[in-house]
Design a protein around this nucleic acid. Sequence first.
DNA 1: AACCAGGACGTGA
DNA 2: TCACGTCATGGT
Length: 232
Amino acid sequence: MTKVLQIYTTLYDTYGPQGWWPFINYSGKNDLKEGNAHGYHILDYDFPRNKDEIFEVCLGSILTQNTTFTSVVKSLQNLNDNNFLDYRKIKRMPKEKLKLLIKPSGYYNQKSSYILGFIEFFESLNDRIPSRDELLKIKGIGPETADSILLFAYKQAEFIVDAYTKRFLVHKKLILENAKYNDIKSFIEKEIKKDIKTRKELIIVYQEYHALIVNHAKKYYSKKPYGIGCFI
DNA sequence: AACCAGGACGTGA
DNA sequence: TCACGTCATGGT
């Protein structure tokens, strides 16, 4: 087993499955199970099931840029409470109203425009799965948001690299400090693919691994000096 | 009171 | 290509 997958195994054994993406209107099989508060869908990998749920993940992916997801949940909840958690309605609502409702997640001027631009693209897809390059051409969607949309909304095998992932892997000396987004992404994917052979399992590992890294890094890699108390 | 959060864009060198 | 400023609210 590669070191990359060893770390994954240790994290998984320590923290368990994350069911990381919270849905506002979660109605899956684990709905009433303990531990699935705030719409988390632990061990339920069927989500998202339909176009509206796919959009909700895309929306959350844009809103979560450089903010915590608790802030994003507030914005999504605001939209839902006002009956606007729907791309067809967001498109038609006054932009100032949209800004107001997503205000808790910050950058509301930019993000409101990004969201509206994305909706145009989203509708033009006609239920087709977008390519990574297509997503990257959209203003407001960079590499991490694109991979987040692909992995969690469209269930594509694309590993997400975020600030925590890089910080963690640099500290573990698996990558260099000056490694770029695509360097890190391809390295991790290549390593994981040495052990994980089926596409379905690959997607689950990518999802859980990213979530586990964020969970772990929040504890040990949030403030300097990084890695204090890290048992990996 | 500074600092950071589940980043991306625009600019100038 | 790369470093740097900007965007903005909310929690510690």
